[in-house]
Design a protein around this nucleic acid. Structure first.
Lengths: 222, 222
DNA sequence: TTTAGTTTCTAAACGCTGTTAAGTTACGTT
DNA sequence: AACGTAACTTAACAGCGTTTAGAAACTAAA
């Protein structure tokens, strides 16, 4: 008994304990919830602390900065995106369909997490060059899923001839640009309120189809 | 003489006059300069007023809000973009080359005005739906330049057959997505410091070429 | 079990921001 | 010349990010 006194006294509610337990996790979750509810401009460090039930200075023991907190949220969002793209990639064995599935997953992520998507790519979040940057790594990992699928598609289908620029990097960049651009436009445009995720998915299929037709010889229908 | 007393007394320096003359213009210019120098986060309403040599409350006689000032800056940026795209469209008579020129102009604008480009598309700048929004109109005008060129290209070249989705809107959206996505990625990516405008132009040509190949029957080389 | 050391938090303050209210100055008109 | 209006200033408010100093709780060794 005396060796485990904690069992005798019931654990107080997290909000009443002086030491939070996992404040870092709570701060990240609160930040995510605030961004989802009111956009990035509603994401205040003081409000995050308030939601977690701690003082305004408490977050500074877990994040060096407000930017540091935002960077961590963005990094986790990229990890989620990477997983979603990887799951989509495993949904089919056909390389072209796989590319379409990855693009659809990308757009679905943007619609599911609009607030995070809007600041995941902001360059001011990145650390200065030279310093290892988890956000940059997480973004590169997402891009890597696409690049792998592009490479597979290139091997299995003939790359359109007569085009000197259809290297891996250019093909991947073309696809990433098209899908990222579409996601941004649908998300930021005023018409985004009227456009449902279903419309977005349909447009994504069309846009990806258009691009793939330009890049691969084999034509594949929706 | 008495009818034009201003000529007798030399006009005092703008900074010394109580009435600024054209404070609205000065605020817009100062805002643009601040954004160009230090990004959007450096664009403070108080600093804008400081640069214009007026008190922090003065801007409120010309803009209802900080957002209102930002919206005006973004609107003017869209007007500049529209002009640049229109000029590029007139640079050639070939419809496909015209599309490439417009895309290159878009990317060149993004590189020339990165700070403005980064917030021109933020949806929180837009007015609530229903209210006539100059920013939305200016953006639609830019898009219109592209749509007109796409329409011309569709008439002059055969649209690739067997694709049910190659309507005007989808084609335009595909091109806009690809070019906008590429601009965003090049601008926001950490590698953007190393990528020169020339590299960007080259990538733009490749990406647009890839997309056009998917959309139009006639193949045209760079 | 006490003690020392370290981590995690609070309280209070700083300068900055966007914004508003009330008062002042200059302009345009009659 | 006087008045009404528009453009500005001064002063203040709450809220923000951040820092400093100190209190509280956990950890581990004596």
């Amino acid at each position: 008994m005396s060796s485990s006194p904690r069992l005798s006294s019931p654990a107080p509610a997290k909000s009443e304990r002086y030491h939070h337990g996992d404040l870092r996790r709570a701060l990240l979750d609160a930040a995510r919830a605030l961004a989802a509810a009111g956009g990035v401009e509603a994401l205040t460090l003081r409000e995050v602390a308030r939601q977690a039930g701690v003082s305004p200075a408490a977050p500074y023991h877990h994040f060096s900065d407000k930017n540091d907190l935002l960077r961590a949220v963005a990094t986790e969002a990229f990890e989620l995106l990477t997983r979603a793209m990887a799951v989509a990639a495993e949904s089919t064995d056909d390389p072209v369909q796989r590319l379409k599935a990855i693009g659809a997953a990308y757009l679905a992520f943007a619609f599911a997490h609009p607030a995070e998507f809007r600041f995941m790519f902001r360059h001011e979040l990145c650390l200065p060059p030279g310093v290892p940057d988890p956000l940059e790594q997480a973004g590169t990992a997402s891009y890597g899923v696409l690049l792998t699928a592009v490479e597979a598609a290139q091997k299995s289908t003939q790359v359109r001839s007569g085009s000197p620029d259809t290297e891996l990097s250019t093909l991947g960049l073309t696809l990433w640009s098209a899908v990222h651009g579409l996601s941004s436009i649908l998300l930021e445009s005023p018409m985004s309120k009227t456009s449902t995720p279903e419309i977005g998915q349909h447009l994504a299929r069309s846009v990806i189809g258009n691009v793939l037709r330009g890049v691969l010889t084999e034509e594949q229908r929706d």
